[in-house]
Design a protein around this nucleic acid. Structure first.
Lengths: 117, 117
DNA sequence: CCGAGTGTGTACTAAATAGGACACATGACA
DNA sequence: TGTCATGTGTCCTATTTAGTACACACTCGG
């Protein structure tokens, strides 16, 4: 189980090769946290940061915030809010889809997107 | 915005009319928390309890745990886990369905349940 | 009258969350 | 050789979460 920080470090170092603005310190500064803290995050020395910080980090590294959040063990609060507004419906739907293959879910997504409702 | 505690109190008092085992103290005991704490919860004097406690409370009162959790401002951790395993897929799906009418979602649920995949 | 049961007020707390401050060693490079 | 910039180690802290403990006042049946 390669942890959150490792992925961040990987991603950041890859960017750093092409662009020296991606040093730990500079990224930390742009993200708005202390370098020491980012260092600890990347080494898994501390738990993944808050939702807000995780999202800023994802943006900075050009990654999908939802994916980064997932790796940080969280689910975006805007998704949670959607679910909370109609708990029964969404709980059923999500549990229903738990075992469904990716392409089945994708089909549903598309179907809904093009939906006629 | 009628808060979580108010719903609990309502529900519990309704049960209490028919069954004297639903006093605040006895419910608290069965749920495994201090009476004083349940009292504060019901009056909205403190934030809603943890996920685990909320679920036990829902069960005790014969309510849907997902609904109680929603009122407590939370989303069941088992649902979160499902989403976290395929963040992009589920994030898309849920955001897609944000504005969909109930019956459209229901149709999707059924469709998936009877699905042929 | 009293004892059991009821709800509540006050005070306290252990653990988790989400970091900040600052000093330090290292290496690059001008 | 000095001076940056880099990553990291150590220590500290405010806030939130999720409750417990205990005493108190009221009421109702026997």
């Amino acid at each position: 189980m390669t942890h959150f920080g490792a992925v961040v470090r990987n991603r950041r170092e890859r960017m750093h090769l092409e662009d020296r603005r991606f040093s730990l310190r500079q990224v930390a500064q742009r993200v708005g946290i202390e370098p020491a803290y980012l260092s600890k995050i990347e080494r898994g020395d501390v738990a993944p940061p808050s939702e807000a910080t995780t999202i800023r980090l994802a943006r900075e590294l050009g990654e999908d915030p939802d994916v980064f959040l997932a790796m940080a063990g969280k689910v975006s609060s805007d998704l949670q809010e959607i679910v909370r507004k109609r708990p029964r419906l969404f709980a059923d739907l999500i549990r229903q889809l738990k075992a469904a293959p990716d392409d089945a879910i994708l089909r549903v997504v598309r179907e809904v997107r093009d939906g006629d409702w």
